[in-house]
Design a binder for these strands. Sequence first.
DNA 1: TGCACGATGAAC
DNA 2: TTCATCGTGCAC
Length: 190
Amino acid sequence: MKGRQSPTRTLPRSFYDRETVTVARELLGQQIVHVVDGVPRVGRIVETEAYLGVHDLAAHSARGRTPRTDVMFGPPGYAYVYLIYGMHHCLNVVTEAEGHASAVLIRALEPVQNVATSTKGPGLLCRALAIDRALNRHDLLSADFYVAGPEAQESFEIVTRPRIGVDYAGEWAAKPLRFYVAGNPFVSRK
DNA sequence: TGCACGATGAAC
DNA sequence: TTCATCGTGCAC
């Protein structure tokens, strides 16, 4: 094998250009990399949630295309980062073809490299990897912020549950769109 | 221009 | 269970 490791392991845009539930499940085990001051902060994704577009009442895009949700309506493979409760950032990856307005929320990471604080929860993982709104709309097929496959993928069971914190979404609140690695201690909640 | 409310986390 | 804290979206 020749060439640099990291760029060649970066997930291709076609990975994100698929059904959102599939992407949410297959993101488990993949690694988020954010290079800060030349230092790569790396975490393994252990918990995700799927947001299925304008018909999903729990999705931000359900209220239409606005300045904030605009990136969700764009092409796949881009970061959607927003501020919640005035103090925490949340990281999503945009999925499916342009116009679908779907995304996967990254809810928890297992520390891999250069991670000093907790990554157990969507707000905490953003703090640990120094992810904020400056990275909104950032291409995840880039050199400083990307998702990559691990050197070797271990097999694991996937647990499926309703999403967290979306009780306002009516029947959509109960749908099994949250996925996590069974038994992993870094999952935000059981 | 004002205001109610979060895809959370920490404290009590 | 309560609260911190502010950008967003929508009502007026």
